[in-house]
Design a protein around this nucleic acid. Structure first.
Lengths: 101, 101
DNA sequence: AGGCAGCATAACAGCATCGTGATACATCGT
DNA sequence: ACGATGTATCACGATGCTGTTATGCTGCCT
């Protein structure tokens, strides 16, 4: 329970999600992620470190570059399911609003 | 993306997950949730409010009691999938550790 | 009407997290 | 060996969240 909450926390940050999204189509090095997301280099580095510790992403140095790669692409399934639920929720809230008005 | 992160944040708190878990088997009133979780009444009330605003839970007063109910039980599917991923991650991390030692 | 149980809210302290700017570290090419 | 590029880390300010205690509010019962 404790651990599950911690795991969800990993995905509860817009910029972190953006970093993750940047890695959807394959490994990228830090600079590439920076360019893809428009975030500062320090911030990207921090988020990548977090994602690495969380076990979502894998770090592999290659020469002077450092590539990061999503370990288990099933995380995107999780994101997708959450998004679906979120949309259903929105719909429900609109219905509830309509029922009042 | 912004909204998705916000949605994940809902599930990123152990006590909030506990409250949600208490509602897994059907509607409960606040006091029942308090007893089920062992949390303070004020705290449970707060978390229930959050869950309500998030559209995860539905508030229905009944006499002097207030029952809360999970709107779409698919949220538990989401929790389950996250837990599964979390366990896979743990396994992977152990493997990575074993590969080093 | 008065009192009580159930629930919600306010105010506050404590703590964690985020983003930034500056700086350190490492690796490559010359 | 040195400079340059890529990456990581530090220190810090700012913000937001959590939990508690105390207090309000509502609806029921006698």
């Amino acid at each position: 329970m404790e651990a599950l909450a911690e795991y969800f926390k990993v995905f509860s940050e817009p910029n972190r999600l953006a970093v993750l999204e940047a890695l959807r189509d394959g490994p990228l090095n830090v600079t590439a992620v920076v360019e893809s997301t428009g975030l500062s280099q320090a911030l990207v580095s921090k988020h990548l470190k977090l994602l690495t510790i969380a076990g979502v992403v894998q770090r592999q140095p290659e020469g002077s570059l450092v590539f990061y790669e999503v370990i288990d692409k099933a995380v995107f399934k999780l994101l997708g399911q959450a998004e679906k639920l979120l949309l259903a929720t929105r719909r429900h809230q609109l219905d509830a609003l309509a029922a009042i008005l």
